[in-house]
Write a protein that binds this DNA or RNA. Structure first.
Lengths: 338, 338
DNA sequence: CGCGTTGATGTAATCGATTCCACGAGGAGG
DNA sequence: CCTCCTCGTGGAATCGATTACATCAACGCG
């Protein structure tokens, strides 16, 4: 690999001058600049980012630790994060935690070892010592989607409360009274909040959320399937299953299908997180859509603000209900589907 | 951040000794080792990967440039790549090319600047000078899924020829005679091969593939939709549309749905790449499944072989047909669906 | 004309690790 | 007892950049 020394030799100047040209330092003669640029071009020289990072203590890299790459919601998030980061001059290294705390820690650790400039996390759990220490030690950090209470880190997320209420009202109007939920892990904020929002909305409608109608999932398809099977085994199964994320909804669909039952005739289904495929499933699935792209971009902006010394702001954006056919026909609202 | 010097001071030894302990160099006294490890623990020291990389000229990092993160096929590939790499002691940095050659180049460039140990690419085009130069210059490199002919780089991919033939036979038996394909970009090998395999299989059945039955797509959903609309506008529309990837199949589904037509009654649909959602679409979609996870793992193994001085091998694994209902009922084969 | 200022450049320190080399102590062997 | 190895250790060079500081020439101004 050609180094700055080779360029300096080729251009007949010192390495300092080469560096100045490359970093657009003002005090370089026109002549020197031209010779350096010519040398750079003829040698095909590219600065070694590793060496540069060591010296400047900046990597221009953000770490993104997401809960599950196979979840379309997170891959869309990752995409928008990378896009915005690139626009701001940063690269992104993605770590996939697969909803496993120890894998999450592994990625946080290697990202910190690489001295990334900042960390974007959607925590899988209540927060390992490692992550809490890093936050306390001053590593620029922002939580996306999920967060850890009691830690002084900005949070960028969607508020699904209103949309969940809309959903419950929608279900109520369709005549459903026994509503069940497949919850996410209690260790995650989104796991808890969605259940709470659901319960509150039910109460507003004068409905109850019995324990047996709360299935415990882990945001993965298999758990959605298991929870749904348990619901179907009940003496009085629910009329609606609301999955707290799209993968558990997929699992629920598997379970219903395996029993030879049909959605929405035998049981209705709704999901948190809207994804493209929901338009084409059988039937199309009613879902709560998050402004995923906007969340990713806002998170990056907050993190970069923090890194570059500006004050980062937490952001909460509203989610919205998208009605399709998986909860039954409703001519009035049905038209608003996409 | 605490550095090796702090550890050395705390343990009362030189930095050389600390480094030896950390790298398991044999010639360190038991006493020194213990003191160093104690110092490391008490300071919470972690070696700076940037500095280490500069010195050793190894980053223990692989670059993976994929064509499109939003494509479930590639995200599954990415996941298996990361998994296998982690098992072998490497990290992975993913670059998303979004099917855009200039973005692909951007990522290749920044990955090379970071001095990654090796590059895994599924090229979006015929190969930019940048990538060809890197390959020639000796950057360890392996192509996954797609490749660039004429470059001396190992290729890990699936061979869909047999599965495409099975598909065509399946379609023929169902009575379909006018078969159309939505192709990928001609600049990609998968874009070309799938069309060729399709054409050859048709010929074996005594069928023809007229130009108007070849839609030009770019592996993105929108192009699948456009191509399908064009098919439907023909005086004699095809009876089957075969999409060369899953996203274009999604677009095709959009187009059919927008016209108020139904699959498979009005038109049949099949896709290359099987994904989980295909089980639940309306109707479930017949697809050609690649051994995606195995491809990712094999690609990493080949790349690491190359990096560590062993001879890398190209790998080709067979794809297989998964019959579902999107091409019409066929009691005989229908049972083999998943 | 001399002095201070400005601009262009080079020398060398530095970032945090790894690793070559030199050195001293201790043990083995003649 | 002397020599030669081996082992444990520290000093210092090194990787490839950035940047503080020194130097020197040219120029403006009183």
């Amino acid at each position: 690999m050609t180094s700055i020394k080779d360029v300096a030799a080729e251009a007949g100047v010192s390495v300092a001058t080469v560096s100045r040209v490359l970093n657009e330092h003002p005090s370089v003669s026109e002549d020197a600049r031209a010779r350096v640029l010519a040398a750079v071009a003829s040698l095909g020289y590219r600065p070694n980012a590793v060496a540069r990072s060591l010296r400047t203590d900046q990597t221009h890299t953000l770490g993104l630790v997401i809960s599950d790459v196979l979840n379309p919601y997170f891959t869309e998030l990752a995409r928008s994060v990378e896009e915005e980061a690139r626009a701001l001059g940063y690269s992104v290294i993605i770590g996939n935690a697969d909803e496993r705390p120890e894998l999450q820690d592994h990625h946080v650790r290697t990202l910190l070892d690489r001295r990334i400039d900042g960390l974007l996390v959607s925590p899988t759990d209540g927060g390992s010592p490692l992550m809490l220490d890093a936050a306390r030690a001053g590593t620029p950090m922002v939580f996306v989607d999920r967060w850890i209470p009691g830690v002084d880190v900005p949070v960028v997320r969607a508020d699904g409360r209103g949309a969940v209420r809309d959903l419950v009202v929608h279900l109520y109007r369709l005549g459903h009274r026994r509503l069940a939920i497949i919850a996410g892990p209690a260790a995650t904020t989104t796991g808890q909040e969605r259940v709470e929002a659901f319960r509150e909305a039910l109460e507003e409608c004068g409905l109850d959320l019995p324990d047996q109608y709360i299935g415990q999932g882990d945001f993965q398809a298999a758990s959605g399937r298991r929870a749904t099977e348990r619901f179907l085994d009940l003496a009085e199964p629910p009329q609606v299953v609301f999955a707290a994320d799209n993968l558990m909804a997929l699992g629920a669909l598997d379970a219903v299908r395996a029993r030879g039952l049909r959605v929405p005739d035998d049981i209705a289904l709704a999901a948190f997180d809207d994804i493209r495929w929901f338009v084409h499933t059988d039937p199309p699935i009613t879902a709560i859509a998050q402004p995923t792209g906007e969340l990713g971009r806002a998170a990056v902006r907050a993190l970069v603000d923090r890194i570059e010394g500006r004050a980062p702001r937490s952001v909460t954006l509203p989610a919205r209900l998208v009605v399709r056919r998986s909860c039954g026909e409703n001519p009035a609202t049905n038209r608003s589907q996409s």
